[in-house]
């Protein structure tokens, strides 16, 4: 089942890239398309952060992941590199679970 998802999602992502190189240029002239598409990753990444921090499956939970996210926010504000942001978040969760 996971394999099917890996293949379908990869095909979908490839199709979206190919569409960009193949669609007529006038699509780019649509001002609304231009304004809207950059907003989509912002909204989706934020939604993913929210749901993966405060939920397990379909249940809302408040656990060490919230503290890990808070530490990650501080790291991002301090402009830490990508790996550092991820590492301090994981370390925070791991340490809090040890307590």
């Amino acid at each position: 089942m996971i394999w099917a998802g890996v293949v379908v999602a990869s095909l979908a992502c490839y199709g979206l890239k190919l569409a960009g190189l193949s669609l007529p240029q006038r699509w780019l002239q649509h001002e609304r398309v231009q304004r809207t598409i950059p907003l989509i990753p912002v909204a989706l990444l934020a939604a993913l952060i929210g749901t993966q921090t405060f939920a397990t499956g379909k249940h809302l939970v408040l656990d060490v992941r919230a503290a890990a996210l808070a530490v990650a926010v501080v790291a991002v504000v301090l402009r830490a590199p990508f790996l550092v942001v991820v590492a301090v978040a994981a370390a925070t969760a791991a340490l809090l679970r040890l307590l």
Partner: peptide
């Protein structure tokens, strides 16, 4: 797939 939609816009710009 939803997150991949931004690549369509990049493709339009790059073509």
């Amino acid at each position: 797939a939803l997150l991949g939609s931004r690549n369509t816009l990049y493709g339009l710009r790059l073509s």
